[in-house]
């Protein structure tokens, strides 16, 4: 069978994360051990509408495969219009994921906006195997309180000994936490040198990476997950080219030294 034929998966649960974002849980209907690592993504098909890349939001340490889908175009709209019990197509996992084997034990995870979806996989992966890691901190910023994902999980992360900082751009009466940029959270962490995992808009990635380098991080220890328009997911169709790299195959996770000139 060609690599382009997807596996079929049944939607078994839909959680509403924010006004334009759902957390969709899937059961793969094929006899296959679906192995993946944090930071990878899948190509999701709604037959008749097409296929688009969606990052995996669940951790491989947990049973259910979860995707965080944000309303952005025709296909994501199509996925979000699906009901529990509907069948969609899945191709993957695609991409490289975070290189945990070369990452240091101390890790800072920084996410901006919808980019945090892929980082949740990494956070839960660490939480489930906490003893294997050292100092771990999470810095996450969104536009408003209503745009924050996974709010019910922050407490559990803290209980597992992870520093968690959350900030919003625009506060309101119901928001008691920080207001401002993700970079301002980083100042609060007493973080020993280690590795970083960042995902968000390019401007946020650059700001956080610069800040971390000021704090003594080496640019090759900073790993960024990049978003690009993708079609094939296997490095052939060229939509996701970043210089000589294909975000879908050589990425989406790159060490910052490789891509900082290309961002």
């Amino acid at each position: 069978m060609s690599d382009y034929i997807p596996m079929q998966a049944e939607i078994i649960d839909i959680d509403i994360e924010s006004s334009n974002t759902y957390l969709i849980s899937l059961k793969i209907l094929e006899d296959i051990d679906f192995c993946y690592r944090p930071g990878q993504f899948v190509m999701v098909s709604v037959f008749g509408l097409g296929e688009c890349p969606i990052s995996i939001t669940s951790s491989p340490t947990r049973k259910t495969l979860q995707l965080c889908v944000r309303r952005a175009g025709r296909i994501t709209n199509g996925i979000m219009d699906c009901l529990v019990g509907d069948i969609i197509g899945i191709r993957g996992p695609c991409g490289n994921g975070f290189p945990l084997e070369i990452m240091k034990k101390n890790i800072i995870i920084a996410g901006g906006g919808s980019g945090f979806a892929t980082l949740r996989s990494l956070v839960n992966y660490i939480v489930d195997q906490r003893s294997k890691f050292g100092n771990v901190a999470v810095a996450y910023g969104a536009r408003t309180r209503r745009d924050l994902y996974f709010m019910q999980e922050y407490k559990g992360w803290q209980q597992a000994g992870v520093d968690v900082g959350i900030t919003v751009d625009i506060g309101d009466e119901s928001w008691k936490g920080d207001i401002g940029l993700v970079t301002s959270l980083i100042d609060k962490f007493k973080l020993p040198q280690g590795s970083a995992a960042i995902c968000g808009p390019p401007i946020m990635i650059n700001a956080v990476a610069t800040k971390l380098m000021d704090r003594g991080f080496d640019h090759s220890d900073i790993f960024v997950s990049l978003e690009r328009h993708m079609k094939c997911g296997v490095g052939k169709c060229e939509h996701c080219m970043i210089g000589p790299y294909h975000a879908c195959k050589d990425g989406p996770v790159f060490s910052y030294d490789k891509v900082k000139k290309l961002l």
Binding site: F47, G48, E51, K231, C232, C237, H239
Partner: peptide, 14 residues
């Protein structure tokens, strides 16, 4: 460079 698209509901071609 190529694009991938679906034509047809419920049956069709990719």
């Amino acid at each position: 460079c190529f694009n991938i698209l679906d034509l047809g509901v419920p049956d069709g071609e990719r």
